[in-house]
Simulated assay, not measured.
Amino acid sequence: MGGAERSARKRRQQQNAGARAVTQARGGGGPGRKTIVSVIAVVVLAALIIGGVVWTNASKNKTEGTTIAPQTASAALDTADERQGAVVVSGNADAKVKLDIWADFLCPYCGQLQQQSGKQIEEQIQAGTVQVTYHMIPLLVNQSDPAGYSLASANAALCAADQGKFTPYHDSLFASQPEEGKRGYDNAQLIKLGQDLGITAPEFATCVNGGTYDQQLNAALAEVENDPNFKGTPTVLHNGTMVDWTQQNWLTNLVNQAG
């Protein structure tokens, strides 16, 4: 091989080496870039998944460790004999308007009814014009996580009724209503609410922890589910006739019609 050929060959080798260096500097041509991009994508996806799980769990369990805010509803509405089996009767026996309300402490529409009309109902009870029979039933017992809040809260409300605190207890549970499908309140939180409302009798905690009225509440639910007038929660009846509680001034109209 002559000197000229050797020089030409050397120049070609140098040119090829330079081209490879440029290609590598630009990140092309090899598997390294693809591998790095894939790893980054996996890390980002994993972070999003973990973040989503953490957020979901936090949202689901947001009632954990919290205190149910006690409401200042008038306990003067309550009487020693207002609990009658699995129902609570509030108001004078000679009231012109007699209502039956079926509700569940987990039911969002029941919470809407309470927010919309609860204060007015209690004012009419106080005035002696309305009597309400409250049927707190565990219709959504399987719709909390863990299951059972509907039954536990209904039982606790009856336990509170035995201590003359049904109305503020009822109002407090709706004012701090947990979301359907998520965690409710446990027995310790339900007991603490009663204590914050002024219940001091140890029988209250025993009643809550022991599920004293669970059997009666389950029996009441089984019975009402066979009643053609029952349309789920909330159901409001006036003298056995369905009331459309979503209509504005529905209670005022009933009171005025009763004269």
Rank of each mutant, 00 (worst) to 15 (best):
M1C: 14
G3C: 13
G3Q: 13
G3R: 11
A4S: 07
E5R: 09
R6G: 06
R11C: 04
R26Y: 12
G28F: 11
G29W: 02
R33D: 01
V37H: 08
A41F: 11
V42D: 05
V43F: 11
V44R: 10
I49H: 03
I50K: 12
G51F: 08
S59Q: 15
T63F: 05
T67P: 09
A69P: 08
A76P: 07
D78C: 07
G85P: 06
G85R: 03
D94T: 09
A95V: 02
A95H: 05
V97I: 08
D100T: 13
C110P: 09
Q112P: 09
I121G: 05
E123L: 11
G128I: 01
T129N: 00
Y134I: 01
M136D: 12
I137R: 03
L139D: 04
V141C: 11
V141Y: 13
Y149A: 03
A152T: 07
S153R: 03
A154Y: 02
C159Q: 00
A160K: 05
A160F: 05
A161V: 11
Q163V: 08
H170I: 00
D171V: 10
Q177M: 07
E179I: 15
G181S: 07
G184C: 06
N187F: 08
I191D: 08
L193G: 00
L197G: 10
I199Y: 00
T200H: 11
A201Y: 06
P202C: 09
E203Y: 07
F204Y: 11
T212G: 07
Q215H: 12
A219E: 14
N229H: 13
G232Y: 01
G232R: 12
T233K: 00
M242G: 12
M242P: 10
D244I: 06
Q247L: 07
N249T: 08
N249V: 09
N249K: 09
A258S: 08
